[in-house]
Simulated assay, not measured.
Amino acid sequence: MDLGKGAVRSGYRLEHFEVLGSTNDEAAARVASGDPGRLWIVADRQTKGRGRLGRVWVSPPGNLFASLLLIEPCAREKAPQLGFVAGVALADALRNLLGGDPRLTLKWPNDALYDGAKLSGLLLESFAQTTFGCVIGFGVNCADHPDDTPYPATSLKAMGARADRDAVFVALSNSLAGWLDLWSRGDNFPAIRRAWLDVAGGLDAPAKVMRNGNVMEGTFRGIDAHGRMLLESHDGKLVTIEAGDLSFAPPLPVR
């Protein structure tokens, strides 16, 4: 397991473990210990992996479980933008490994899909202690994927892709280093937004959003200048949504 050469040149570090409870938890502990950041934590297996909204993330060997710790990466109010930077970087890395395959898309806010099936998830967490730390956790289905999920899932192996976990990590570490530089601590989010929309799945498609136990239906119109979802309701009103679970009734269109 190695960092990409571009990530090394940019000053990123790597610590690799056989087993951890959660790579995000390990990275969070480093905030308290005073770690300077730009640290990747990777585990072969997790025993307490989790996704968004506290959901369990199944963590079999052969998949990628990696978290990046960043210390004082931006003004605190701009930290949510990091989820979009990370999503764009992951999509960029995966598409390159898949020969530019347009069936690899992003679903708001940060799931990577292939032909509408979930290939990867992302968990962004922040910690305000003596310093401000952000942790970006990635779970990529490389060798295996769960079959008992409410939303279809897939893996690189099931897709017939030759890229393994190590190749994905090299590509991701290089890609994220570059996109973080372009983002420029939040001063260049418009470039990230454009790149996100270029790989977004389900644009202009019928959509449902689950939020606080309520379901909203309409048409997905992308994201605004702050990364909030834009949903056009059936009566033509454009609704801005900061958090929720997005799903599409028909198959996601290839763009």
Rank of each mutant, 00 (worst) to 15 (best):
A128N: 09
Q129Y: 07
Q129G: 10
T130P: 00
T130R: 14
T130W: 07
T131A: 11
T131C: 07
T131Q: 10
F132G: 04
F132M: 11
F132I: 01
G133P: 02
G133R: 01
G133Y: 04
C134Y: 01
V135M: 04
V135F: 02
V135L: 03
V135E: 04
I136E: 00
I136W: 00
I136P: 03
G137E: 00
G137H: 02
F138H: 09
F138L: 13
V140F: 10
V140Y: 06
N141H: 10
C142R: 00
C142I: 14
D144F: 12
H145N: 13
H145S: 14
H145C: 15
P146I: 03
D147K: 14
D148G: 10
D148E: 14
D148S: 12
D148M: 09
T149G: 08
T149Y: 07
P150V: 12
P150T: 08
Y151D: 11
Y151F: 13
P152H: 04
A153Y: 08
A153M: 11
A153R: 08
T154Y: 07
T154R: 14
S155I: 14
S155T: 13
K157N: 12
K157I: 10
A158K: 15
A158T: 15
M159W: 15
G160C: 03
G160W: 05
G160E: 11
R162H: 13
R162F: 08
R162Y: 11
A163M: 02
A163K: 01
A163Q: 04
A163H: 02
A163P: 04
D164H: 03
R165Y: 09
R165G: 05
R165F: 05
D166G: 06
D166W: 05
A167I: 04
A167D: 07
A167V: 12
A167C: 08
A167Q: 15
V168P: 02
V168E: 03
V168M: 08
F169C: 05
V170P: 02
A171G: 13
L172Y: 05
L172S: 07
L172Q: 10
